[in-house]
Amino acid sequence: MTDLLVFWQENLPLMIDGLIVSLQVTGLALFIGMPLGLFLALGVQGKSIAVRAISMAIVEIGRGAPALILLQFAYFGLPNAGISLSSFGAAAAALSWTTAAYTSEIIRAGLEAVPHGQKEAAVAVGFTPMDALRFVIVPQGLRVAAPALLGFSILMLQATSLCFAIALPELLSQAYMIGTTTFQYLPILLLAGILYAAICIPATIAVAFLERRLGRHAA
């Protein structure tokens, strides 16, 4: 047990560096992907056939293609089209697409959960359809979708482990590098799991608490 703790202590700085990279990629993917998800959700519900078709195509490709395929496409495929991205840039781009595709469906469900009478009431008091969307429908829809969006954020942190395939020095990549050097894969992967759990378990508890609070308020 003492040897295990010493091993973890020696390698913890590198693992923390990897965890920071994982959090950075997750944060950037959510920062870019969630607003895009909102626009895609609105596009899928739009009146224009062209906008609906384009939005649906982006969503279905993002949901249908595994995140690992999107990562490799962004890192290995785009250079063939003259677009070269670093491993960090490719990870952010691919995971942003995945985030946008999945959160668009979450947000769309939230928007559809808003009673139709809310929009009618907003128009009745003088709001334009756009103002009703901005100030009434979207805020309420996002509130309904908030717990699911936060839960998805936890999944995206876990999905950054796929970035080892494009040589991004995130948490799992650091664990593999240390394991390759020391041949002690089990202890270092166990430490990686503990670090993921240290973030994900409190976040999951916070999401469940928020969901209960919102549920009581809605009731």
Rank of each mutant, 00 (worst) to 15 (best):
L186M: 14
L162G: 04
S153M: 06
I166W: 01
L168M: 06
L142M: 15
M156Q: 09
I166T: 03
T182C: 12
L171H: 00
E170Y: 08
E170I: 07
T181L: 15
A175T: 02
L168D: 01
F152H: 09
F183W: 08
I154S: 06
F164P: 00
V144S: 13
Y185E: 08
G141H: 13
A167R: 04
I154W: 08
T180Y: 14
T181H: 14
E170P: 03
A165E: 07
S153D: 00
F152Q: 12
C163A: 15
Q184A: 14
A159E: 05
A145E: 12
L186Y: 09
G179V: 09
R143I: 11
V144Q: 13
L142Q: 11
A148F: 01
F164Y: 13
T181I: 12
A148Q: 05
C163H: 01
M177P: 00
A148Y: 00
Q174T: 07
G151M: 06
I178D: 05
A146M: 15
L157I: 02
A167E: 03
L168G: 03
I154A: 05
M156I: 15
T182I: 08
L172I: 13
A175F: 02
I178G: 06
Q174E: 11
L157K: 05
A159Y: 10
Q184E: 13
L172T: 12
I154C: 03
T180L: 14
A148L: 08
L171D: 02
F164D: 05
A148N: 11
A165F: 10
M156V: 15
T181D: 15
A167L: 11
M156E: 08
L150C: 08
L155P: 00
G151I: 01
T182N: 12
G179C: 07
I178S: 09
T160M: 05
G179P: 08
L150F: 10
A145Q: 09
L162I: 07
L155D: 06
G151K: 10
I166G: 02
Q158N: 07
A167G: 10
L142Y: 12
A165T: 13
V144F: 13
A175I: 04
L149W: 07
L157Q: 00
F183A: 10
A159K: 06
G151W: 02
A175L: 03
C163T: 14
M156H: 00
F183V: 02
S173N: 10
A148G: 04
S153L: 01
M177V: 13
S161E: 04
S161F: 03
F164Q: 13
G141Y: 14
S173Q: 09
A167W: 00
L157T: 02
L142H: 09
V144G: 04
G151T: 04
A145L: 10
G179E: 09
A148P: 03
S161D: 00
S153V: 02
G151S: 02
I154N: 07
L142F: 13
E170S: 04
L162N: 03
Y185F: 15
S161M: 06
I178L: 13
R143M: 11
Q158W: 07
A167M: 12
